[in-house]
């Protein structure tokens, strides 16, 4: 018998420390598969974020660097400009990318920096214990919005793909989800496009991924997967927000 699915060589053997049902593991695996399928593992440098996936530098079987919170796109810029042959991916959560690192994200896009940004949107701060994220939905409870996000006091969520759609430099923007096999297949396709764009020297590509955080949301893994369909993807519609390769055709 032949193994047709199993741990890809793009992942190390280390068992990941995520909670049961967490979407990070799924996205990690998709990236790892692409490192192998696109034959880029040996020229990739990955950027781990601060947050739950801070340990991503142990999980990806490629060169990795751990930048300050939110500064992934800046660090990626430094590496990419120094070694244009390297493939850079910056893996970031919602606090990392859409709060503390908003400026770095927007400006990397504006410069059309030839990097791949993978944005995990789970609408909550996981590692610090479930506080309000820039992507927490209106009315959604967190440990710093115990009665639900009050948009009058706490403002509105940030829709990253929509925000970056206003940045001319951005080359490719797509929002996906990893809550069902169908969505996971689409996510992998989007990630592949994002890597290919970089390999073809095209430009800034960002894939936003709606991802489960059952612990932070206070639900079971199975409920969390359903919630993305029922609630989260209604607020954050899935789809392609920018694809200059298609526009140019």
């Amino acid at each position: 018998m032949k193994k047709i699915f199993g741990r890809p060589a793009g992942l190390t053997e280390i068992i990941q420390r995520y909670c049961p049902g967490c979407g990070h593991g799924i996205v990690h695996r998709l990236i790892a598969e692409l490192l192998v399928e696109l034959d880029i593992r040996e020229r990739t440098v990955g950027i781990a974020p601060v947050g739950c996936s801070v340990f991503a530098d142990e999980y990806f079987n490629c060169d990795m660097i751990q930048p300050p919170h939110g500064r992934g796109p800046a660090v990626a810029t430094g590496i990419k400009r120094s070694r244009p042959d390297c493939v850079l991916f910056s893996y970031q959560g919602d606090g990392d990318l859409a709060a503390i690192g908003t400026a770095e994200t927007v400006h990397a896009a504006a410069r059309n920096e030839k990097i791949t940004v993978i944005f995990i949107n789970n609408a909550i701060y996981g590692m610090t214990g479930g506080q309000l994220a820039p992507t927490t939905l209106p009315g959604m409870r967190s440990t710093t919005s115990v009665k639900g996000r009050d948009v009058v006091k706490q403002g509105y969520p940030i829709k990253v793909c929509e925000l970056l759609s206003g940045v001319d430099g951005a080359y490719y923007l797509e929002r996906c989800a990893v809550n069902t096999p169908k969505n996971i297949i689409k996510t992998k396709k989007a990630l592949k496009t994002a890597f290919k764009n970089q390999m073809d020297d095209k430009g800034f590509s960002l894939v936003e991924i709606l991802s489960m955080c059952p612990t932070g949301w206070g639900v079971t893994p199975v409920q969390s997967k359903q919630w993305i369909d029922d609630v989260m993807s209604k607020y954050y519609p899935l789809g392609v927000y920018r694809d200059r390769a298609k526009e140019e055709k």
Binding site: I65, R71, A74, V75, R81, R83, A103, E104, V106
Partner: peptide, 24 residues
């Protein structure tokens, strides 16, 4: 060489972090 006028000093120093980590 590479010259980058950045969005902030925060971005600048982190670009250095990346470039230095890349061995430059």
């Amino acid at each position: 060489g590479v010259f980058l006028q950045t969005e902030s000093e925060i971005a600048a120093i982190n670009m250095l972090f990346g470039a230095a980590a890349a061995g430059k």
